[in-house]
């Protein structure tokens, strides 16, 4: 299947990415090849695909969950030490005049 530039733009919006016109051309061409590659999972395998269709989700055990205990957490100052320009608030450029 081929994928259109409009579909790539829609995906980019979902992924919170943007592409220049030139990048978009290149990505669309590459993406066609990547999707064709992903489509190869639709080949049949020896033994048939019937078996695959019948597989249920992996069983999850709920017997071994940890107890919900409050444990010490990291201090706020440390957690926020990587925030650019943090002074008790998250500072961003003014976006509304």
């Amino acid at each position: 299947m081929t994928i259109s530039k409009t579909e790539i733009e829609k995906l980019a919006k979902l992924a919170k990415l943007s592409f220049s016109e030139e990048e978009l051309e290149r990505f669309t061409a590459e993406f066609d090849e990547i999707i064709a590659f992903a489509d190869t999972i639709n080949q049949s395998i020896e033994g048939g695909t019937e078996q695959i269709r019948n597989v249920g989700a992996r069983m999850v055990s709920f017997d071994d969950l940890r107890t919900d205990e409050v444990v010490p957490s990291l201090p706020n100052e440390k957690i926020l030490s990587n925030v650019e320009g943090y002074n008790g608030f998250f500072s961003v450029e003014r976006s509304k005049k």
């Binding site: 995906l11 980019a12 979902l14 992924a15 990505f27 590459e30 993406f31 990547i34 999707i35 992903a38």
Partner: peptide, 11 residues
């Protein structure tokens, strides 16, 4: 990384 994020978003 962008290619893989895009493929992941697609599937």
């Amino acid at each position: 990384v962008k290619r893989r994020i895009m493929l992941g978003t697609y599937v």
